[in-house]
Amino acid sequence: MGRQVTKSELGDLVGRDERTLSRWQNAGMPVQEFGLGRGNENLYDTQEVIEWLMQQAALNGKKESARDRLDRVRADREEMALAKDLGEVVIAAELIERFEAMIQAAKIELLNTLPENLASELSARYGVEIDDQLIRDPIEAILRELANYDPDDDDPSDGDHDGSDDPEDAEEDGP
């Protein structure tokens, strides 16, 4: 955010009279606050005005016509299609679909194959019968917790109880 100035101050900064600034305002120059009532002046953010002026200079004072905008949108669409074909971008929906398939495969492996194989291997190695449910129960609990994961939760079970790992902070909170 830039400095907040009146129209007179803005005119001095950009070297234009107030009539020119009024014309620019009608053409879309940003106004931070409109002065309501007689004698109350509009206020302008110098950074926003400067950015608007640079944008106008880039357009050479020309407004983008509907046809120009349509051509620009079509060109952007073609550029995105080319980038996708070249493998430079990934469509979010495709990425989500692949990620969900990987998670589903891992879940099947964790719930079906791993407990039985691990129980069998442990039983053979240690000569004790291992119930695969002993392995499956903690896996299911972890998967349930993952399924309910919400990154916006401030749940202290995420391991960050105070938000600080500094031992000095822990001493201050002491007994």
Rank of each mutant, 00 (worst) to 15 (best):
Asn40Ser: 10
Asn40Arg: 13
Glu41Tyr: 09
Asn42Lys: 06
Asn42Phe: 02
Asn42Ile: 00
Asn42Gln: 03
Leu43Trp: 04
Leu43Asp: 06
Tyr44Thr: 01
Tyr44Glu: 03
Tyr44Pro: 04
Asp45Trp: 06
Asp45Met: 02
Asp45Ile: 03
Thr46Met: 06
Thr46Glu: 00
Thr46Arg: 03
Gln47Met: 09
Glu48Trp: 06
Glu48Asn: 07
Glu48Lys: 13
Glu48Val: 08
Ile50Ser: 12
Ile50Cys: 05
Ile50Trp: 12
Glu51Gln: 13
Glu51Tyr: 07
Trp52Tyr: 07
Trp52Phe: 09
Trp52Asn: 04
Met54Ala: 11
Met54Gly: 08
Met54Thr: 08
Met54Pro: 00
Met54Asn: 11
Met54Lys: 15
Met54Phe: 09
Gln56Met: 02
Gln56Ala: 05
Gln56Ile: 04
Ala57Tyr: 00
Ala57Asn: 07
Ala57Trp: 03
Ala57Arg: 06
Ala57Cys: 11
Ala57Met: 08
Ala57Pro: 02
Ala58Pro: 01
Ala58Asp: 06
Leu59Asn: 03
Leu59Ile: 01
Leu59Cys: 03
Asn60Glu: 12
Asn60Arg: 12
Asn60Met: 10
Gly61Ile: 03
Gly61Glu: 02
Gly61Val: 00
Lys62Pro: 00
Lys62Phe: 05
Lys62Trp: 00
Lys62Ile: 04
Lys63His: 09
Lys63Asp: 10
Glu64Tyr: 05
Glu64Asn: 08
Glu64Trp: 01
Glu64Thr: 12
Arg67Ile: 11
Arg67Asp: 13
Arg67Leu: 13
Arg67Trp: 10
Asp68Ile: 04
Asp68Cys: 06
Asp68Asn: 07
Arg69Cys: 00
Arg69Asn: 04
Arg69Pro: 02
Leu70Pro: 01
Leu70Met: 11
Asp71Pro: 00
Asp71His: 14
Asp71Asn: 14
Arg72Ala: 15
Arg72Asn: 10
Arg72Val: 05
Val73Ser: 08
Val73Thr: 12
Val73Gln: 14
Val73Pro: 04
Val73Leu: 15
Arg74Ile: 14
Arg74Asn: 12
Ala75Asn: 12
Ala75Gln: 15
Ala75Cys: 09
Asp76Ser: 15
Asp76Lys: 14
Asp76Cys: 13
Asp76His: 15
Asp76Ile: 11
Arg77Cys: 14
Arg77Thr: 14
Arg77His: 14
Arg77Trp: 11
Glu78Ala: 12
Glu78Met: 12
Glu78Arg: 15
Glu78Tyr: 10
Glu79Arg: 15
Glu79Tyr: 09
